[in-house]
Structures are given as C-alpha cells and as structure tokens.
Nucleic acid binder design. Structure first.
Lengths: 148, 148
DNA sequence: CAGCATCCGTGAAGATACTG
DNA sequence: CAGTATCTTCACGGATGCTG
C-alpha cells in the first residue's frame, strides 16, 4: 500500500516530477509579467501528458468504464491508465463512480472542470492534426541537414 | 558531436519517447473514430513539454536571445533551454538566427507555424492560470482523503 | 472486471566544467 | 555570450502476477 502504482518512490500519482523536482533554488521568481511558471507548469504537464490528453478526449464523449478506455486507447498499459485516471481524479478533472456489483464496475466521467479543459485541449489536438504534415516535414528536413 | 546535448542515448532532442517506444505490438489501430494517436501524440508531447510551452509563450512577444529566454524562464537549466530550442527548431516552430559577432549573438523567433501554435497554447495557458486554484484545491482535498 | 504489488529498463533532466 | 561534453540520478512506464 506504499509502492502501489507509484513507480518507485514518488508520492504523487501522475505528475510529481514538476512540483517536486523543480524547485532547485530558494527563490524562483521568473518575472511576474509573463507566466508564473510553477503552478501553471504543473497543469500544463498534465495536459502534456499523452495519456491524460487521450483519456480526456475519450471521456469528452461521455462516461466510460475502465476497460472501455483501455480498449479505446489501446496503446496504454493498465498501470498507466490507472495512474492517469488517478491523476485526473486528483486534479478534479474526472470523477470515479464505483458500482459495487459483481463483477465490479467503475465509471469515469469528466467533471465540469474536465469538460472545460477538454475544449482547449481539443483545439490543440485539432491544430496538431492539421499541422502534423508541416511539422513532420520540418523534422525530416532538419534531420537531413543535421546528419545527412 | 554525438552525445551533444542528448541526455544519454536518444536520437531525438525533446520528444522521442512517443514515436519510438510506443509500438509494442504488431497491429496498433486504436479506433480511427477518435484520435489517431501516434502522430498527434508527438505534437502534443511537444506542446505538453513544460519548457516548450514557456519558450513559445515568451517568444510570442517577439524574438529573444538565448540568455534572455533563460532569464525569463529562470527555472530552466541552460541545457534544457538549448534542448528545447533545438526541438522547437526541428519542428519548424522557431528560427535560429546567428549573428557572427563577438561576443556571439543568437536570436530565436517564432515561425508562422510557431505563431499559429502559440494561440491554442496560450489559450491553454490561460485556462491553466484561471483554474489553477480549483485544481490545487482538488489536489489538496484528494491528498487529504487519501492519506489523512 | 477493476485494481494492486513489484521488478526492471530506459531515458529525461540537473549539475558542472569546458570551448569558440 | 552561446553553446558542448559528460556523469549521475531517479521518475516514467512496461510486463507480469495476484486479489476482491
């Protein structure tokens, strides 16, 4: 009940790295006029987390069960899905509803907050989809210049 | 010129994990009706990368120099900044302009593609900022329930 | 079915010292 | 100033096996 799903010796489910590892200095004021880093970063990292994004997208359709999500995302391991869901739950983005039946059934659903997030996230997803070619082209070109 | 800034033995600057490690099986069609994962994921991971986001935000004001960015972001290490910038450059999101003066001067600027990305990214940033409290509150609450 | 518990490899990121 | 080079750490994430 200690190591649980937590990889090795973390204390947070799915986005520990930022909050914990990032304060390497005593005072860390970047410049208030831009972005206040610390806090925003921890939210951004949730968004940047591949699995979180996919889960959010899948759930924007409506509530889903555990294995349903697993099938939809398909590349995700069960551990990562659990971890991701716990993280999203922790952040108040999804709710976890347990039906004490046999066999057990658990539904995951976006909260209002989660739905709010899903909008900019999907906007981003659309952008990504739209410009994928350009980016991949740029990557190829860059790689050729750099080692070809 | 081989190990360079690349941490240990990667081949991509800042978002290699997804494309490479993700194909653990022969057939990996998730369900075309949702998101096509692989490609989008690699873009999302760039966006989700904390440092990339901050750099993009900083550069949306206009071109900046290396150390200027470093100061603005402040929590970033010099290595990570270089790595991030190379990644963004590789993806065709920023340009790198070298002035062969002494001392040397390098300007980084968003490309059109980069500016395009900066819009949804900033939307996300705003969202993150706006709902930071809610999320942190949720986190605290969740943590208390879970171990208090 | 949903989920813990564990072991383990990989690689992302920090710190530091050196160069043009 | 703007990088490079290198070492080290340790968190992410996969695979597997066990519970209620």
């Amino acid at each position: 009940m200690d190591t649980l799903l937590k990889p090795a010796h973390t204390d947070l489910p799915a986005s520990p790295s930022l909050d914990q590892r990032r304060d390497h200095g005593p005072d860390q004021r970047p410049d208030p006029n831009h972005a206040d880093c610390r806090g925003v970063a921890s939210v951004l990292s949730r968004v940047g987390d591949k699995w979180s994004v996919f889960v959010i997208m899948m759930l924007s359709d409506g509530p889903k069960r555990f294995n349903e999500l697993k099938r939809l995302i398909n590349g995700i391991s069960q551990r990562m899905l659990t971890l991701t869901l716990r993280g999203l739950e922790r952040d108040g983005l999804v709710t976890r509803t347990i039906f004490p039946t046999i066999p057990p059934r658990v539904d995951y659903e976006l909260t209002d907050l989660g739905h709010g997030l899903s909008r900019p996230v999907e906007a981003l997803g659309r952008w990504a989809k739209d410009h994928l070619d350009q980016i991949e082209a740029a990557r190829t070109k860059f790689d050729q210049r750099n080692e070809g």
